[in-house]
Amino acid sequence: RTVITEEFKVPDKMVGFIIGRGGEQISRIQAESGCKIQIASESSGIPERPCVLTGTPESIEQAKRLLGQIVDRCRN
């Protein structure tokens, strides 16, 4: 099985929602997708915060879908 790493950007102001209380939301996304997610600790003042996704191509797609759902929910 091929493990790859891909960068994905999330809106900086939504990082708190993505991580969740005590990290529970990000842990759930990682468990559900099987993908490791590392969010940069600093956005360096830019509106997007880079995340590094590591896993199989399928797990990365699943993680991006779950992250996208959270971002959409927070935008509305």
Score class of each variant (00 low, 15 high):
I70K: 05
V15T: 05
T2C: 06
S59Y: 01
G23L: 04
V10W: 02
G22E: 11
K13Y: 15
S59T: 06
F17Q: 12
P50Y: 06
V71Q: 10
L67R: 00
E61A: 12
Q30I: 05
V71G: 07
R65S: 12
K64C: 02
S43I: 15
L67W: 00
Q25G: 10
R73S: 11
E48A: 05
G34D: 09
G68P: 01
Q38V: 14
L66M: 11
I39C: 05
I60Y: 00
V10M: 06
K13C: 10
I70H: 07
R49S: 05
V15R: 03
G22A: 11
S33R: 00
E61F: 12
P47V: 11
V3Q: 08
N76Q: 05
S44W: 06
K36Q: 09
M14T: 05
P11W: 02
G23V: 04
E32T: 10
Q25E: 13
V10N: 01
K9F: 12
T2G: 14
D72Y: 06
K9R: 08
G20D: 07
G34I: 01
G55F: 00
T54F: 02
I18L: 08
A31L: 09
I29E: 01
I19S: 11
P57N: 07
R28N: 06
K64P: 00
R21M: 14
E61V: 11
E6H: 08
P11D: 09
L66I: 10
I18A: 03
S33W: 00
K64N: 01
G45H: 09
I39K: 01
E6N: 03
F8P: 01
I70D: 03
E48C: 05
R28I: 04
V10Y: 02
V3W: 07
R49G: 05
R49N: 05
R73T: 15
P11F: 02
I60C: 08
S44Q: 14
E58H: 03
T56M: 04
I39L: 06
E32H: 04
L67F: 02
S33A: 05
E7H: 14
M14I: 02
I70V: 15
E6I: 06
V10C: 06
E6Q: 09
G34W: 01
T5A: 09
Q30G: 04
R49T: 11
Q38N: 08
G45Y: 04
F17P: 07
S44E: 14
L53E: 00
K64H: 02
V15S: 07
E61H: 12
T54Y: 07
P57C: 05
A31P: 01
E48R: 05
R21N: 14
V52Q: 15
Q25A: 07
K13D: 08
V15Y: 05
P11E: 06
S41A: 12
E42I: 05
I19M: 09
Q25R: 15
I37K: 01
R73A: 12
I18W: 03
T54I: 09
G45A: 11
I46W: 07
E48M: 11
P47E: 12
G68M: 14
K36A: 09
L67I: 05
Q38T: 11
E48Q: 06
L66K: 09
C74L: 08
I70E: 14
C35G: 01
E32K: 10
Q25F: 07
E7T: 14
S33N: 01
R1I: 13
R28E: 08
Q38E: 13
Q30F: 02
L53Q: 00
S44F: 10
I70C: 13
G68L: 11
S43R: 08
S33D: 01
K36R: 12
P50L: 11
I19N: 14
T2E: 14
I29V: 10
A63V: 02
I4G: 05
L66T: 07
K9A: 14
Q62K: 13
G68S: 09
R73I: 05
M14E: 03
I4H: 05
I29N: 01
G16I: 04
K9N: 06
K64I: 03
V71K: 05
Q69H: 15
I19Y: 05
Q62L: 11
L67V: 08
R28Q: 13
R28S: 08
G20Y: 01
E6S: 11
I4A: 06
G34T: 03
I70L: 12
G20S: 05
S41D: 10
P50T: 10
P50I: 14
C74R: 14
S33T: 09
L66F: 04
G55L: 00
Q25V: 08
I26K: 03
S44T: 13
G20W: 02
R65F: 15
G55W: 00
R75Y: 04
A40E: 15
Q62D: 14
R73V: 12
K9M: 13
I60H: 01
S44H: 13
F17D: 15
C51G: 03
R65L: 13
G55N: 00
I37G: 01
R75H: 14
P47G: 10
C35L: 01
S27M: 11
T2W: 05
K36I: 06
G55P: 00
I18H: 03
P47L: 11
D12V: 05
E42W: 09
R75K: 15
R49F: 04
L66N: 03
G22P: 03
K64L: 02
S43M: 08
I26G: 01
P57D: 04
R73G: 15
E61L: 08
P50M: 11
R1A: 08
G34A: 06
F8S: 04
I29Q: 01
T54N: 07
E32G: 03
M14L: 10
G68N: 11
